[in-house]
Design a protein around this nucleic acid. Structure first.
Lengths: 346, 346
DNA sequence: CTGAAAGCGCTAACAA
DNA sequence: TTGTTAGCGCTTTCAG
């Protein structure tokens, strides 16, 4: 026999006041006599009252929930669907993202709903979820260029904030990093330590972030008298970094410095270098990007360009909140500055 | 000027039927004339109707949401709070868990709410969240023994399912692995390949899973004439595995086989072995546990005992669903069987 | 400062 | 098979 959960009505009766008054106390609205406030609090205690969020959501039109969406490119196979989630989770970058988001949300008694959207069907479901008011807005992390999700969300006027500027212009708020500046830091560091035959391993070049890191790196090298920089494109994974490094070594055996556009690829590059008998950093210096947890764990520990991922993620949550509350209606962007973290690899 | 979202009422008017009929169509309840069904569907299309979940939740008393909770031991410092999330996410085990849960939930248009609870305050918030009906139940992953969360949830009669049998008995449903059998597989494999001086690196021994793996390993070794097995306790991290291996080598330089109670520790052990000039598996054979993604990525690839984590997680979700729907009211347990995966390390 | 009352949008008896 | 109607539990004017 399970007793019905106590409602506002029950508390009101218990405290000898009206529902409205209890509601005011629960929601911390002032203009309530301190004595009555106390009485209500006691009644809540006695009854073990917990407000029904569905009822509140119905009238406030707010779920007090936000979605954390990872949008990618994949096929509809079921194996692929499950794999996508664990692949994303395996990326150390994602752990920092969640840490940052949770850090912002928790003090507000909110927790993110985790959604993976690697197909158009899945993306439609994300839109439907938001349209049904199950979440008030979305933090979107796209893993590929031309992701249609931001535009779909914007078309429905659903609040959302992106990580990174979208590759095709969409009127939507985002946070990003000054990638060119980061790449510049890497280039200057390699040059300063005496490297003269410097190459770079880029991310997927359809991603603006990867393009910007490459452009910034080239620019700086050029300005310092190195107009030609060998380039190998990778896919932001350790495996792709390893094979990119192998290609680079084949074509340019004399390379003495490498800038990889993320830590995972830098890690892969290190593995290849070690296997080919190159010492790091004596023979080849390696600089990564992100300062994810693999950077410190790598052998040797990676010199890298730090992206303040947690703060960026927390800022996304704050911007989304503003959008939901209507504090700000026009899209904005917040750009963060990278920092060089010198360890042992360069 | 943002137009009010269309409601059932709007659709009903558009289709020339009653709200109830539209509701029936939306919820796929039969006994609706096909022609009317079609008309309603068109009206939904025209109006762009999306059901308001808060309203539905209010009457069905169901949020159609479940929480995925990671409960751990930590202090109240803010840095610790954020670190906990990314530490958990960094564990490859967790990626498989999420993959399994999402695989079950998604076909049901559900997505997990991610909650981290490493302090008593945070755990109280988890309970409050569920009591408010923001989620219908919880999947709980405890990272330490004697976690008070399962008991707290049970006391409030909130539906929940645990990963692994709780260290103190709580009347609650859980899934688990036949740890002893897994350890037996490891022992038999090491013995079969000719190892005679075999040691083991255990997990934190306050965890039943760690105890069982140790007990199963010892038992099998004993039955095969090896009553004494050197033991070093680790903490389920690569770092702890590395130092446990170092202690083992100091005290038992002649060791020729090691069973680590998870892959992360096996990975750490491999690192130490390599640094001390031991070849794997020629000088020392290493067997891990879990078959997480580090197992295949390790050098050399780890022979390990596979825990079907995705299936276990998916089963948790199914059991929770049953509990929420009241299909089953008594706690149950589902125990999975481990499998040996032979790669190169042993 | 407090209470009465009108919904929020939906589901589910119950009637027709 | 369809419609009518009574809430679900809460917030929020609007009076008092």
């Amino acid at each position: 026999m399970t007793r019905r959960a106590p409602t506002l009505e029950d508390v009101a009766r218990e405290a000898g006041v009206s529902r409205a008054t209890v509601s005011r106390v629960v929601n911390g609205i002032r203009n309530v006599d301190p004595a009555i406030q106390e009485a209500v609090r006691e009644a809540i205690e006695r009854t073990g009252y917990a407000p029904n969020r569905a009822a509140r959501a119905l009238v406030t039109r707010r779920a007090e929930t936000i979605a954390l969406v990872v949008s990618g490119a994949g096929d509809d196979s079921e194996s692929e669907q499950n794999a996508f989630a664990s692949r994303v989770l395996a990326d150390p970058f994602f752990g920092r993202v969640v840490g940052g988001v949770v850090g912002f949300l928790r003090p507000r008694s909110m927790y993110p709903v985790l959604m993976f959207a690697e197909t158009d069907t899945a993306r439609r479901e994300v839109v439907a979820y938001l349209r049904q008011g199950r979440a008030d807005g979305a933090l979107v992390f796209s893993t590929h260029a031309g992701d249609p999700l931001p535009a779909a969300l914007a078309a429905e006027r659903l609040p959302c904030v992106l990580f990174a500027r979208p590759s095709t212009p969409v009127p939507v708020t985002y946070v990003d990093l000054a990638h060119r500046d980061g790449a510049r830091l890497a280039a200057e560091h390699l040059l300063a330590r005496g490297c003269r035959r410097v190459a770079t391993i880029t991310g997927p070049l359809d991603l603006p972030a990867a393009q910007d890191r490459l452009a910034g790196f080239r620019e700086t090298m050029e300005r310092h008298g190195h107009p030609y920089v060998p380039v190998a494109e990778g896919g932001f994974t350790a495996e792709s970094g390893a094979s990119a490094m192998a290609r680079l070594l084949t074509e340019h055996p004399g390379v003495d410095g490498v800038f990889a556009a993320n830590d995972l690829m830098a890690q892969g590059a290190c593995r290849t270098l070690r296997e080919r008998g190159r010492r790091i950093p004596q023979d080849v210096a390696v600089v990564g990007f992100d300062d994810s947890r693999v950077a410190a764990a790598c052998r040797p520990p990676l010199t890298t360009v730090r992206q303040p991922t947690e703060e960026m993620a927390a800022t996304m949550a704050r911007l989304l909140q503003e959008e939901i509350e209507g504090t700000r209606s026009d899209p904005t962007a917040v750009i963060f500055n990278p920092e060089l973290v010198v360890r042992e690899s360069a």
